[in-house]
Design a protein around this nucleic acid. Structure first.
Lengths: 244, 244
DNA sequence: CGTCCCGTTGACATTTATCAATATGGGTGG
DNA sequence: CCACCCATATTGATAAATGTCAACGGGACG
C-alpha cells in the first residue's frame, strides 16, 4: 500500500519509480481535517494552496447571482483539488466537504517544482486533468441534451463507479451520501423534481431505495437510458515515456 | 511575430526562451487544410494525432443516442485540439471545421517528448488546460442554472472575446459565423428558441443584427444578465518557474 | 428558374419549476 | 427516556419555460 493517495491514482495509469513515489509522498506530508459542511476554499477569495483529498467526499460548486448553485464536480480520495484556483487571482469555485474529510495541503510552488523535477509525473497529471475534462464534457452533454430522468440516472451511476474506485467492496448497493437538493444542484434540477425522478426510476424497477441505501437493480437499462460512459476505462497510455 | 500559433498563446502567459520557441515550432512543421464542414476527428474512432489550430474556426461536439448534438467547445487559432482523444482508445468527441481551416498535426509522442525536454512548457500546457477547464465549468453552470436568454447572451460574449484574442481589430461589431442551430446545440436549446431569444435581446436593446453582422450595443447589461466572466483575464502565473 | 438551407413566426404540447402542505427521521436538550 | 426541532423527503396543484410542429420567406447558388 502506497503512502500517498495521489500516487495510488497515478500508479493505476502506469507503474511509478521509487523517485516518483517519493516526490508524490512529499505532497502529502501535512494533513488537515475538514468537518462535514466546512468550506476549504471559497469562490472569489484568493487561493494559494492545492490539496490532495485523502479521505471523505467533497464537492466543488459555483453560486450564481440569483443565489442558485451549480455543483461542478464531486471529489473523491486521490483527487487533486484547487488546480483551477491557483492560476487565477481569485478562486473560480468553492470547495466544500460533504462528509468529514482529510486533505493534504501543499503550496503551488511544490507543484511547479514537481513538474520540473519529474516531467513524467507532469505528463501523468496532465492526463488526469484530461480525464476530468472528459467527465466534465459528459456532464455538459447531460445538462444540455438529456432529460431529467437520464441526468439523475447518470449521476447515480457515476457516483457508484467513483465510490468503487476507492472501495472495491461496493457493488450494486451503496449509500449515496447526497441530499436530493445536492443531486438537483449537480444535475440542474430542483430537489422536488429529483424526488419525482427517483420515484419514477424506482417504479420502473431500475433502482431501489431502503433506509438511505440505494441499489441499482438494472444497471444495463439504467446506463442505456442515462447515456452513461465510465471514463475511467478504456484508457490508452502506451505513449507515456517508460519508467526510468 | 512568432512562427508558431501555439507559442503566441503560451507567450502571453509568460515570456518564452529561444529553446522553448524552437520546441514549439517543431509541433507546427506540417500543415493540413480542412474545408468548412469537414471532420478532422470522429467520435468513437481511434485518434493518434494532436493538432494546433492555425487558421479558422472549429468546434468539438458529441452526438447522443437520440441524434441530438451537444457542442462542447469552439476552437480558435492557437488552440491545441485532440488532447482528450489521445488518452482513450477512441476519441470521445468529434472535431469539425466551421470555416475553412489550417491545422498542424503532430504525433502524441511529440507531446510526450516536449513534456520531458521542456518541463516549463509542460506546466504552461497544464495551465492552458486549466483555463479551458474553467471555461467548461462556466458553461456547465450556464446550462444547469441560467435561462435561455442568459445562455445565448453568454455565448455571444464569449465568441466575441475569443475572436478578439486572434484579431484585435474586433470590437462591439463582428460576424458570429454560427447558425442558430449551432448556437442552440452549444447552449442546450432548440434553434427556434434561440431565434426568439435573439429577437428578445434585440428588442431590449442589448444587441443589433444587420446582414450577418452582430453588434453588442450594451455589453455591461448583457454581461450582467448573462452571468458572464472572461476567463482569459485575471490570471496569476507568478509561481511559474522563471525562463532559463 | 428552381432548390435548399437558414431564419422567422404562430399555435400548441411537454417538461420542469414553483408554491404549499404534510410526513419522516435523526439529533439534542431537558 | 422523552419531547421537540430541524433538515430532508414526499406529494399535489398550478405556473412558467422551452420544445415541437408546421408554415412561409429570402437569399445563395447551381
Amino acid at each position: 500500500m502506497s503512502a500517498s493517495c495521489f500516487a495510488e491514482i497515478l500508479g493505476e495509469l502506469a507503474p511509478l519509480s521509487d523517485d516518483e513515489c517519493a516526490a508524490l509522498a512529499r505532497l502529502e506530508e501535512r494533513t488537515r481535517h475538514v468537518r462535514r459542511g466546512a468550506i476549504l476554499q471559497r469562490e472569489n477569495e484568493p487561493a494559494n494552496e492545492l490539496f490532495i483529498l485523502n479521505k471523505g467526499l467533497m464537492m466543488s460548486y459555483v453560486l450564481l447571482d440569483d443565489g442558485s448553485r451549480q455543483i461542478l464536480r464531486f471529489l473523491f480520495p486521490g483527487d487533486m483539488l484547487g488546480m483551477p484556483g491557483i492560476i487565477y487571482r481569485e478562486a473560480p469555485e468553492t470547495l466544500c466537504a460533504l462528509s468529514d474529510c482529510v486533505v493534504c495541503p501543499f503550496d503551488r510552488s511544490a507543484l511547479s517544482d514537481l513538474m520540473t523535477a519529474q516531467p513524467r509525473l507532469g505528463s501523468m497529471i496532465l492526463i488526469v486533468s484530461q480525464i476530468e475534462r472528459v467527465a466534465l464534457t459528459d456532464r455538459l452533454a447531460m445538462l444540455g441534451r438529456t432529460s431529467a430522468k437520464a441526468r439523475v440516472g447518470a449521476l447515480l451511476l457515476e457516483m457508484r463507479d467513483r465510490l468503487r474506485a476507492t472501495d472495491k467492496s461496493i457493488a450494486a448497493t451503496f449509500s449515496l451520501g447526497l441530499t436530493q437538493e445536492e443531486i438537483g444542484d449537480a444535475t440542474g434540477l430542483t430537489s422536488v423534481h429529483v424526488n419525482r425522478m427517483l420515484r419514477q426510476l424506482e417504479e420502473e424497477g431500475l433502482i431501489r431505495r431502503d433506509s438511505g441505501k440505494l441499489t441499482l437493480t438494472d444497471e444495463i437499462t439504467l446506463a442505456r437510458t442515462a447515456n452513461y460512459v465510465n471514463r475511467y476505462e478504456n484508457l490508452d497510455l502506451s505513449w507515456l515515456p517508460p519508467r526510468k
